[in-house]
Design a protein around this nucleic acid. Structure first.
Lengths: 345, 345
DNA sequence: TTGTACGCGTTATCAT
DNA sequence: ATGATAACGCGTACAA
């Protein structure tokens, strides 16, 4: 690909590259006529400054890296949507990397990001990552880093997360307030911060309503499409059996819904269901399923916004805050009806 | 961010940068001992060649641009997943741009891609784009381009698309073979190539089975979450009324499913349903909904593979082929049962 | 076998 | 007000 350079303009106008450079940057010490000529010529040749040359010269590449477990996932694709929007508006390009939930690829991705001389890193840790020394090293070398969603307490950076505690509390409390007493909680990997926060919200709601916490009602895992059914069977075999399910992901909510219907368990007469899901899924399922909606896009926007502030202002003394974005509980109609909505889909 | 350079290694070892450069490239004319020393030092300093300097020097940036309408969409996020995988394996980074379905942003994104000196462009046109002169100009300037999914016939590039005709034919034929005669088709914007191909497959299946094509059974549009219900009502008010729906997107499939259930229309006793959807959605809904699955990831992989071939081999005489990736029809059990599966979800 | 010089596009620092 | 030059990191033709 050819592209006009300062040299092209200089040659065209028989002046020097530095004059062209200054004219385009609107330097005060330059002849108005020359300036006009340069501007005109630049426009005619569709001149764009070469960001690569700029990167090589200065220390800024006007690009940031976003490292996520996977793109093909509603949550992360919505987050990236928000990230891209804000980043572009502030003049940054976005390089996207997938870890595929492995530590190895996470490290490789960060190397690649460094090689590309990105100005900062936005990361949601892979589920395999427990040791964060690779990120700490990066940070000590001066790379601005912001964590979002899957964050580590070890790592001293700003963190942007959903209000997992609040969302889980609201969902559980809602179920209790509508008469449920044995609420099963189907959730993901136990070592993730988001899992722990949701579990804490669930427990707090039980406690505040004077209900016991029963370990046997809580199940952690990475359940495949065919594993939810047996899990539901196992839980429904308990005595007394659950009268509600609170699920932590899209897959779990849909899997649970399908399993209950297949087993001819009336929803919500016998069992209620609330899912912690994403906006798009909630959208598609509405007006069928009440959900706690994850603010994925807002998290992305807030996270990138923090990162760009960090990059541009270089807050050396930036206190590593945790920013919590509220979740929304979507009940299609009145809260009384809401429990009854699950009969449809 | 600091990062080791050739100069750092040279200084450390008291030799010249060019010696270091050659040692690392394993030049045959170099002292084995020097080579070993350089290698060791490079490893110790975590040396990575600076791709920015390489881009500035040569003509290759080892990066490609992917321009899609939106990321927060199962189809495109899966496609990007495939693209990223293959690109990384072949040593390329991926820059992602969203058009948000506007022509204006498509043009801006391509400018940005050119400014970043990408080696090639993978694009799925925005729904607003009918004039492709911006891409033609880019191509004439020598930029390798491959279109996927939303393609234009005007633009003389390789095209990678799903077998929309075949998929629509299979779905329609399946419905007819299981006794349906009045099959409504809910689909998206009529000017998109994918829409036309699916419509053609639908028509062909009707024709081959000796059924008439009834315009009033086909509806085009960008239906919001609350618009599918009324549309279904309108269609069900026709005489004779439809006994099946074939829908062209995730949203339409789910919206249609919800609308039918809400209206107490028995599926499939009264009305059958098959959706043209994505793997992840099909996955989540299974074993509830039979679908024609779009091969999003495979399309991404094939498209990027073609693009990289174009970049690396510079096939000047590359015949602009259209590569068609087959779709898969997912019937959860036997084809007889399949029609009966829709009662669940 | 190793070192020197140049160029990629840009800006900053001199000089004129 | 404008021009020449150095520097960013790299590879390579050329010189030693």
């Amino acid at each position: 690909m050819e592209a006009a350079t300062l040299k092209d303009i200089a040659r065209e106008l028989n002046i020097s590259v530095s004059t062209v450079s200054r004219a385009l940057r609107d330097s005060y010490e330059i002849n108005a006529e020359t300036k006009r000529l340069v501007m005109e010529c630049a426009a005619r040749l569709h001149y764009r400054p070469n960001p690569i040359a700029l990167s090589l010269k200065g220390s800024s590449s006007k690009a940031i890296a976003v490292v996520v477990p996977q793109i093909a996932n509603y949550y992360f694709s919505q987050a990236i949507n928000g990230i891209e929007e804000v980043a572009n508006r502030r003049g940054y390009d976005v390089l996207i990397f997938q870890t595929h939930e492995t530590y190895e690829r996470e490290v490789a991705n960060l190397r690649q990001a460094v090689a590309r001389r990105v100005d900062g890193v936005l990361i949601s840790l892979s589920s395999e990552t427990s040791d964060t020394s690779h990120l700490q090293e990066l940070q000590q070398h001066g790379m601005p880093i912001v964590q979002f969603d899957r964050v580590s307490g070890e790592l001293n950076t700003p963190r942007v997360v959903a209000d997992n505690f609040g969302g889980a509390f609201a969902a559980t409390d809602h179920l209790i307030k509508t008469g449920r007493r044995r609420i099963a909680h189907l959730t993901i990997q136990p070592w993730l911060s988001i899992t722990q926060e949701r579990l804490a919200g669930y427990r707090a709601a039980l406690e505040q309503n004077g209900l016991p916490y029963d370990e046997s009602l809580v199940r952690f895992g990475t359940f495949g499409p065919d594993e939810v059914g047996p899990l539901v069977d196992e839980l429904m075999a308990l005595t007394p059996r659950p009268d509600a399910f609170f699920t932590a992901s899209d897959r779990l909510a849909l899997g649970c819904l399908a399993a209950l219907r297949q087993r001819r368990i009336a929803i919500p007469e016998e069992v209620s269901l609330v899912g912690f899901t994403n906006l798009t899924v909630a959208d598609m399922l509405s007006p069928s399923l009440s959900t706690v909606v994850q603010p994925a896009m807002e998290i992305g926007q807030e996270a990138v916004s923090r990162l760009l502030d960090l990059i541009e202002l270089k807050h050396r003394a930036a206190p590593p805050t945790t920013i919590t974005i509220p979740t929304t509980m979507v009940l299609r109609e009145s809260s009384q009806l809401a429990v009854g909505r699950f009969e449809e889909v």
